[in-house]
Design a protein around this nucleic acid. Sequence first.
RNA 1: GGGCGAUUGGCGCAGUGGCUAGCGCGCCGGCUUUACACGCCGUGGGUCGGGGGUUCGAAUCCCUCAUCGCCUACCA
Length: 889
Amino acid sequence: MAEIPKAYEPQAVETKWYSFWEEHECFTADPERVSEARPAYSIVIPPPNVTGVLHMGHVLNNTIQDILARKARMDGKEVLWLPGTDHAGIATQNVVERALRKEGVMKHRDDLGREKLLEHIWEWKEKHGGIIIDQLKKLGASCDWSRLRFTMDENYTKCVQRVFVDLYKKGLIYRGKRMVNWCPKSLTALSDEEVIMKEQNSQLFYFKVQVVEEPDTWLEIATTRPETIPGDSGIAVNPNDPRYANLIGKHAVRPLPVENQAHLPIVADEHIDIEFGTGVLKVTPAHDKADFEIGQRHKLEVIDVINANGKMNELAGADLDGLDRFEARKVATAKLEEMGALIKAEDYKNNVGFSERADVPIEPRLSEQWFLKYPSQEQSRECVANGALKFYPERWSKTYDYWMDGLQDWCISRQLWWGHRIPVWYRGEEIHCGLEAPEGDGWEQDPDVLDTWCSSWLWPFATMGWPGDTETLKKFYPTTDLVTGPDIIFFWVARMIMAGYEYKGDLPFRNVYFTGIVRDKKGRKMSKSLGNSPDPLELIEQYSADALRFGTMRSAPLGADVLFDEKDVELGRNFCNKLWNACRFRQMQGGETEGEIDPTLLTSDDRWILRRLDQAITEVTDAFAAYRFTDATATLYRFFWSEFCDWYVESCKATFFSEDAARKANVLAVFDFVTGHTLRLFHPFMPFITEELWHGLGFSAEMPDDQGGQTIMTAHWPKSFQDDFKEHYALDETIDDLVAAKHELVTAGRNLRGIGNIPFAKKIDYIIKPAAKLDAYEVEVIQSLLNAESLKVDADYAPRKGTPVARSALGELYLPLDGLIDVDAEKVRLEKQLEKIASEIQKADAKLNNPKFTERAPEEVLQEAKDRLAEWQQKEQQTREAIEYLADA
RNA sequence: GGGCGAUUGGCGCAGUGGCUAGCGCGCCGGCUUUACACGCCGUGGGUCGGGGGUUCGAAUCCCUCAUCGCCUACCA
């Protein structure tokens, strides 16, 4: 047995064990090992962006996955945790382009051209793509790294293309000219999910237009976008609006001087909100989704006045031509005012869609794009509704269902270079969709690439070698659990489910655990600009990975956001230290670990801690089954610190310092039994320190060597004790009462020192008057826990009236103080206590005097209430006596 | 506009019909007690967001109001 060093040095220990696990292939999944006796457990990582660095969200997410994977291994399952990274189209291209501009390699991507830019991005990927993988290893992630995947691996790319071609042939993918969300900065179309609505402090401008047929009539219109007036091709009112009924079918003239000064038809459309503004809408079909649809209904002209880059064009008129859209808004407003058409401008809050990546307002734009009609919609809705696929917390299934109910076709083409190129070729009017370029000359491949999510929605099976019918796929698909954030429920989760049904005929995972969002302790979202996002690597450096994991899990309840506080990590660190020192203390006692427990030598404390351990095993195991990791950590914390260290270990000291070798050996055996179980219960949460201590205490010697290494990783998950075990060791309930009474007496006894302000270190003499015969062992332990010089057992003890006393079911514990008491302070304390007792008695009385209660409450509830009243009355009597005594003193 | 969630001691949370509403951190007081000051011992501190109802009994179930958060939405 190697000696456990005095100070825990996590950095060296963590590196050592991670290498050990990797060398011994502890993370490797082998489909051949899967059998009835050894079921498969699988989980695919939500692939982080290949250029990403580890943040607190990853820590939370991957710690949970690792906990699940490690627990599954201890349950005897063959575990595949499949890792990988995502090429993250726009994000990555942005990052690399920015770097290249900074380095002066290019000003704009057109300077380099497609091929060259892609070379640079690949180069970047090779250089930085491994960073986050190394960081996950630091965290302790037990992924099967031999299967590391990337969404632009050759095989993966083939999957993406194959699916595209298939859906094209099924008629589910089509090309069309539609209104899309256009990002004027990235110069690409975006899906609805990539647009984030943000509330803006805007202005609502009221201006007037003249009705052509009735020159005396002016219509007032409210708009937030006066710069698009040149793109207006109609005026719309609600058909049920009496104010404007007589104008329908007539025309109006734009106030802005533009080349094309046509008369705009006034149309009636149900979509117009009578209440809003003036109830009159200017219709700009080219620059607003709703307007486009109104335009379609009334055959209005589409006048595109904004270019792809967000600048106005010549159709906007000479005044606005070439201006940025926001600049143009100011100019247009000034122009309206100059013309006397502006009535007023009022402050107004509205929601504007922003590009998720480029963070600029998106521009609705008519554009030729590829769209996808979602496949397997019915099955995908059904599996969540009927519980075949479970969401944790369950309430997200409503969100899911709501979205599935209103599915809109997905715009999948992106005007980018980094990504999977669309497998379609054109030659004149001809079009070819296939895995290979068509035969013959003159074919041009579509320049666009696919939305990133258009590859990641295949992740669960594409990473397992699909479309080949591989062993991995057969054994590990569908996966067991998916751990991800609810923010990508539509982006990713829903789409994976649909792809899973469409291509594997089965759901992709059975359970989805939605983590909360990691916020700072003030509840704010973590962000670079706020600077409130700690670097997990620094936290690991300072506190250890185990501390970070435990601290995070301890404050991350299922279904709630995580308010991250570095204090939590500190607590994790402190806990590791406690664990470490408790094990060190064990080792300092010497003795072998293989000691068998002799049931005849078990003390009440031994039995009690075994019962507590059994309880902890049940609680932690149940918590796992319900994905309640916070509960599991709370149980472990309570059990190990409050029950094992604070009471059991302290009780053991009486034995350890005694001369009784047999008794000592038996306590050590119990101690080892408990720590052996505890380390295993902790292992999923704190893999490194538990492995170190497992070896340090010599438990590894008991391990089967079936994976080329002796490791706690494959030790069996503790099971709740069987009845025959409990019987053999006499672990019956009566133990709990005895030990609880003992603890109560000790705590109360320690409190007696408070009366005279006697420091705990001072050895003093207590006298105990036992209620029944008290074991010599119990007396010894109580004396030790009280740090008493002596503890005299005297069944006939007749204390002087008012001697401080502590009581519990075990008996009475006296501390003769002989004039050390501060009479006044003590009196105040007792008076206060009396008030509290009186109020409790009143409550209990009221309850028992209520005939409805006494008639209808069940017998045991009634009895409890009676007992409680009696208890309080007794306390009242005792307190009165003490006060009386003080008055005499 | 619709939906979801939250509201319990200073802070973060547990507690879904019945013990005196718990826990962690913090606060306060005392301790170099033979593992651990990243520690030990102990004390305070809450009319469970407001109001109403159901019930013998409500933090817990129902109604209502308030505040906060999240998601969703083509009110320009």
